[in-house]
Design a protein around this nucleic acid. Sequence first.
DNA 1: CGCCCTGGGTGGATCGATCTATCGATAAAA
DNA 2: TTTTATCGATAGATCGATCCACCCAGGGCG
Lengths: 338, 338
Amino acid sequence: MHEVLKQRVTLLDIAADAGVSRATVSLVIRNVPSVAESTRKRVERSIKRLGYVYHRGAASLRTQQSHAIGLIVSDITNPFFAEIIVAIEERLATARLVTLLGNTSEDHAKEERLLKTMREFPADGILICPAISRDTSTGTPNLAGRLPTVAFARRVDGIDYAGVDNVQGSQLAIEHLCQLGNRRIAFIGGDPEVSTGQERIQGYKRALVRSGLQFDRSLVVPAPPTRRGGYDVVLQLLQMENPPTAALCFNDVVALGAIEALQQAGVRAGKQFGVVGFNNVPDAAQSLPGLTTVDTSPRELGETAAELLLKRIEQRDSPIRTVILQPRLIVRQSCGTH
Amino acid sequence: MHEVLKQRVTLLDIAADAGVSRATVSLVIRNVPSVAESTRKRVERSIKRLGYVYHRGAASLRTQQSHAIGLIVSDITNPFFAEIIVAIEERLATARLVTLLGNTSEDHAKEERLLKTMREFPADGILICPAISRDTSTGTPNLAGRLPTVAFARRVDGIDYAGVDNVQGSQLAIEHLCQLGNRRIAFIGGDPEVSTGQERIQGYKRALVRSGLQFDRSLVVPAPPTRRGGYDVVLQLLQMENPPTAALCFNDVVALGAIEALQQAGVRAGKQFGVVGFNNVPDAAQSLPGLTTVDTSPRELGETAAELLLKRIEQRDSPIRTVILQPRLIVRQSCGTH
DNA sequence: CGCCCTGGGTGGATCGATCTATCGATAAAA
DNA sequence: TTTTATCGATAGATCGATCCACCCAGGGCG
């Protein structure tokens, strides 16, 4: 009695079973109200009975929209991004959109492959945090093509962007450190080629100038944005003949590495050396001493980015939008108390 | 001259431009050899000129395969999984398969939504690390349906599985700690409801018995698999009237938290208290003291899982396969030296 | 009674790529 | 010269869901 050979249950099977036409079944599935209650019930029963599975691919071929959007992230292992991802997924889910996640590991080739795949799918839109790129001309905007695209966290010219005011964030941090009496403050980690790094360093410089402090090139030490990066740089800084008394770190992970190095070197973080991070990841609150950090509200950032994309999809030809969220300083114990 | 209104460039457009039929263009795209070199060149030029983008959806509707597989992970922020993900993606890419990544955050509802979406897509197969489930009857196997499905890291009955011999891993660790003279060894973190936790605790017990040690229920302390989890449990253990002298941790993250707590409490990790982790994440080598840990080779695990899925797709009706990788102990400084 | 709605439902065309069967032409074989 | 391969290319059907135009029965209304 069972149709064993037939692989997939289609609308036609349901239609036959319920004694209606394909079109009617389709109406039921899409919850179109113009179906009599009795018919709807009958169709729904058939759907259950036969174990029908909706075929998105077929539907989107006809409707020209996949209800799927591509989310391309440069590093899923970074907890900051992880939170953004979750926020984006949640926001998109409320708009009945599915999220396809791709990870580039900061690799340009992978990024291009992913963009290609998602265009081919085809996704209805793309959210991307571009991989670090030295050459903006081969950057992402052209890759995105005509597909609605929004960049987040890292700026890309010519497309919608949701980001954080990194300049302001750095300024908050530096002002705080200055008020606590620090005169020599380092900037640790981050890549001066990425917009995030650029902006944070720019804010760092600007705040130093405002506070009447010297900008010392040797106190800006780029490093990979990892625990190890912060660790190594701090050990290096402590070797200087005139070492800094505090450091603003590119992000919290770097900052945690920095604190580890300080402990290792017998320097008491928070008492003898101030450390400020960026992002306020969950670990920052747990660490010892609690990490003072610039909160960049990843959840809001994710929601904002998703929102931008939804608007862009709605009206493709609206002017380019840029949303910059304002960060705030979370004061804990890693800089001493005021 | 430009076709502004027409949205998408299709095979038909290319065909018209190159003066051939759709079918021929299709042959060119799929690199079928039976096309004259001159024709191929001409078609390829048209493809470039018009900016054609392959439409996976349309193709897979006809071929009944999407060349996409769904990868569902319970926690992308866990570096152990992050490595597995990368390995899986790489392996699948060599088979010209695209990976659709989904994150459940250990949430069953999300897991079900993701499975549904991926079935609807439809994906050609699914790789899943199931979310923690207390009720195996509502577990994943039924959700997977007839789609080729492989579980990894956490066991699911009735489907292919790639995992690590956690029992053996724990035994290696405990034996090592015993040889160093520890008599009271705790097990920290992990959820006894998940197969991973069960197996590791089982190995812990078994090794204790073999070494002629008492199994003390109060020394097994479940906790969330986070830094914080390890931290809290260690502080708690140190309060005991007869505290343990070493601990096997559910994973490295927990172990790093444990070490942090020891340092905080003035107990020298590695000298006065031995700590062993699980997974050998990158941070483990960097930490101070270097973390002795059970290497569960996430890369191999990912490759193995991908391999299993490829085989399953090739022959859907082959018997269920289970691959268990053997872990090895990486000795660093967190247990003292022998 | 004839006319027009209108709620409920339907067949056929359609989305874009692929598969199958087939065709024309040229070269090789008989 | 006729037949048979062979090669390159093609028209039309097809995958599964959706959209469009249209249909039909019954009710209201002049």
